[in-house]
Computed example of a mutant assay.
Amino acid sequence: MKVGLLTREYPPDVYGGAGVHVEFLARELGSLTELAVHCWGEGEADGVVRHRAWADLDTANDALRTLSVDLSMAAALEGRDLVHSHTWYANLAGHVGKLLHGIPHVMTSHSLEPLRPWKSEQLGGGYALSSWAERTAIEAADAVVAVSRGMREDILACYPAVDPARVHVVHNGIDTDLYRPDPGTSALHRHGIDTSRPYVLFVGRITRQKGVPHLLRAARQLDPGIQLVLCAGAPDTAEIDREFRTLFEELGHTRDGVTWIPRMLPRPEVIQLLTHAAVFVCPSVYEPLGIVNLEAMACGTAVVASRVGGIPEVVSDGTTGLLVPYDAGQPERFEHDLAVLLNHLAADPRRAGAMGTAGRHRAVREFGWGAVARRTLDVYESVMELRKN
């Protein structure tokens, strides 16, 4: 089967969970299909074709630039048997490719535009375009892959025109040979983290979705002996960047042990940071699955996370971590409860260690990429079979 895999992010340009998903899925699918990856960028090598937005649109709204990339991707799909797109940045390319080449379109939903209204801050009027692109693609797709059961429910609620029989759940995965405990501490020393004190770690983008402002406000209530390490970059907008910097500076005036690493680090450094954290924290207000929680679990670290979206399908409350209910109408309650649980686990290394061990076992047992790829191939084959009939 000749498959075209469409994505915005692909190594070396990966900044979010969707990019991680495509990177490892492509690695496994490469041995099961005749795979061609199409992503953003320039050049072509080793089965990866990179597409640049039209030069005439260099100063245009990002949504318009995305549509130009989508048209380039769609034109390059000739000869493929099936196209599989990831995120709204590539969904319209999959839809146009389906129409142009008469091939089935499978799309994976990593998030949904109707549930991310804050994206209007980033895209302006382009948010209406991104929402239109997603709706057009998802309602016409031959199959939709949801990365969690919670995500499947969201898809059917946001897009009632989608036939439930076409929505399949295939969880995100984790490479537990790559993500595993690393006893080295060079990355900690390099970034000025005190190895004699426990630290809470956040890894992710600076965006409304990831709940970073909530974490910074919650950190005011952390025990003084606990450090906070923020591996946080790629702000969505200038506004969220300013809010983050203001809260970070305010926190620094009231306590020590707050470290901000303002960029996405090489994977080996992230693995060391995950390994040695007393607790990993995921304060997301919206999260279809939360692959970063799997990464922390695979490194043997306990997780404190929001009880939203697909996170409860990854973090087993009371076994591999602790979950905090989130109510958008009560942000102070969420921040207080988040701080209470972080303090609790950081002060109880025995319990946190047991959760980390259980998390590692769960990641190995249930979330391997080989199984994810095989389940994805099952979706492809079911779509191709329906096409024959």
Rank of each mutant, 00 (worst) to 15 (best):
M1P: 06
V3R: 05
V3H: 04
G16D: 09
G19R: 02
L29F: 00
G30Q: 01
S31H: 07
H38P: 00
H38Y: 08
C39G: 11
E42L: 13
E44T: 15
D46I: 07
V48L: 09
V48P: 01
V49T: 13
A55E: 13
T59D: 14
A63I: 14
S68C: 04
A74P: 06
A74N: 10
G79P: 09
R80D: 02
Y89E: 15
H95W: 11
V96E: 10
V96F: 03
H101R: 01
G102H: 00
V106S: 03
V106G: 01
H110V: 15
P114M: 06
W118P: 01
K119A: 12
L123T: 02
G124W: 12
Y127S: 10
A128G: 08
L129K: 04
S130C: 08
S131R: 12
E139H: 03
A141N: 11
V145N: 01
G150W: 04
D154T: 01
I155C: 12
A157R: 14
V162K: 09
D163T: 13
H171K: 07
D175H: 10
R180M: 00
P181Y: 12
D182Y: 11
S186C: 02
S186R: 02
A187E: 09
L188E: 05
G192K: 06
I193M: 09
I193D: 09
D194G: 01
P198Y: 08
V203E: 05
L215M: 14
A218G: 06
R220P: 03
Q221A: 15
D223C: 02
I226T: 11
L228D: 07
A232K: 14
I240N: 06
I240A: 04
R242N: 04
F244K: 00
F244I: 11
D256K: 06
T259P: 00
I261T: 08
P268H: 11
T275F: 06
A277N: 11
V279H: 12
P283Q: 12
S284D: 09
P288E: 11
L289A: 14
V292A: 07
N293C: 15
T301G: 04
A302T: 09
A305K: 05
T319H: 03
Y326C: 04
Y326R: 03
E335G: 06
L338C: 12
A339Q: 05
L342C: 08
L342P: 02
N343W: 05
H344T: 05
H344D: 03
A347S: 10
A354R: 15
A354T: 15
A358P: 05
H361W: 06
H361S: 10
H361E: 11
R362Q: 00
W369E: 01
V379G: 00
E381M: 12
E381S: 14
S382P: 01
S382E: 11
M384Y: 02
M384T: 15
E385H: 04
L386A: 14
K388T: 14
N389V: 13
